[in-house]
Design a protein around this nucleic acid. Structure first.
Length: 333
DNA sequence: CGAGTTTGACCCGCGC
DNA sequence: GCGCGGGTCAAACTCG
């Protein structure tokens, strides 16, 4: 299996570099979240969990280092691309993250949609936690049964101070809390938020501490904003965590997509498994562990660097922007 | 005083 | 039909 990651031939690893050009990453398929910390619902005994935790810690350290390199590269890329876009007069802020989503017409409808969305997680309660993540992202589209209307459901995990009782996940948008409830499967209360920036915005957010890790906040977003992100650069930069630009790497292999989010700044890592609707059951966690070990290997890292370089150089947009930026820096001849 | 938060009550779907 | 649980409402409350 490990040879599948590298080797002379075309690697099945598909690298997708996101340099934060859109506030919300777009995905085209329903994505099932599998975080590196196994949950009670995933089966496995305590030994397996401890083993997975140890592996997660090792992986976290390595990913931190990788993320730092990634961050530096991304900053350069973003700067170059930003200047290029600015000169072209493109409007990043109006990036096509906002697909019009009709508001839920009734409580029942919303409930059905959300349950469908949760079913895409492969786990009904959907309260899985992500380890070591300051800001993890997992998004999925919930198919409204029969209507083919898609409700976007995304989840963000944020590491917080366990003593911090606030259920606040800063994401750049304005939220108004409209309820709080203690749910059965989690002793910590769940807070309900609506988007307060635009009254007609259908987006809702649920924030709850992870049942397993009280230092982890899990925010579940439903729907998509029908308005731009509030144009406050500081807040935009705060998405993910303080002062970082959104950056992610997606590694897609054939079959169920395994996505590794190397959210920089703190080495936040999340392994996301994307299921295509409910048709494909999630693979056993053992496969995921193998993937994690694979990702942590030096071979993978070197392959990753090669892929990054390849992805960058093969992107005419990037090369064009890079060339333009270099030309701009050079003195006039 | 207005905006935002809290919190108990209520609504609704689902399982038995 | 009934009870349970998640989600929402809205009055009361807090804060700047």
């Amino acid at each position: 299996m490990d040879t599948a990651w590298r080797g002379g031939g075309r690697s099945p690893v598909c690298l997708d570099l996101c340099v934060g050009l859109s506030p919300v990453r777009e995905t085209s398929a329903a994505r099932h979240e599998l975080l590196d910390r196994p949950t009670a619902g995933c089966g496995g005994g305590g030994d397996a969990r401890r083993l997975a935790d140890d592996e997660a810690k090792i992986l976290e350290a390595k990913v931190t280092q990788m993320s730092e390199e990634n961050r530096r590269l991304t900053e350069v890329i973003t700067r170059l691309y930003g200047s290029h876009v600015a000169r072209l007069g493109l409007d990043d802020a109006a990036s096509p993250q906002r697909r019009p989503v009709s508001p839920l017409s009734s409580r029942k409808r919303g409930r059905e949609s959300m349950e469908t969305a949760n079913s895409c997680d492969g786990n009904g309660n959907g309260q899985k936690s992500g380890a070591a993540a300051e800001a993890d992202h997992a998004e999925s589209f919930a198919m409204d049964d029969g209507t083919c209307r898609r409700i976007k459901v995304s989840r963000v995990c944020r590491r917080i101070d366990p003593s911090d009782a606030t259920l606040v996940v800063k994401d750049g948008y304005q939220w108004r809390k409209y309820g709080q409830k203690v749910t059965r499967d989690n002793p910590s209360p769940r807070a309900y938020f609506r988007c307060a920036f635009a009254p007609s915005c259908p987006v809702k957010k649920k924030v709850q501490r992870s049942a397993e890790d009280s230092s982890l906040l899990v925010a579940t977003y439903e729907g998509e904003h029908n308005h731009p992100l509030p144009s406050r650069p500081g807040e935009l930069a705060a998405v993910g965590s303080a002062g970082s630009l959104p950056c992610s790497i997606s590694i897609n292999s054939s079959g169920p997509t395994i996505t590794l989010d190397l959210t920089k700044n703190g080495g936040a890592v999340q392994v996301v498994e994307a299921a295509e609707g409910a048709a494909h059951p999630p693979p056993p966690p053992q496969d995921l562990k193998e993937v994690c070990l694979e990702v942590a290997s030096p071979e993978f890292r070197s392959a990753l660097v090669e892929q990054m370089a390849s992805a960058l150089t093969s992107d005419p947009k990037f090369t064009g922007a890079l060339a333009a930026a270099i030309l701009q820096k050079l003195p006039d001849f």
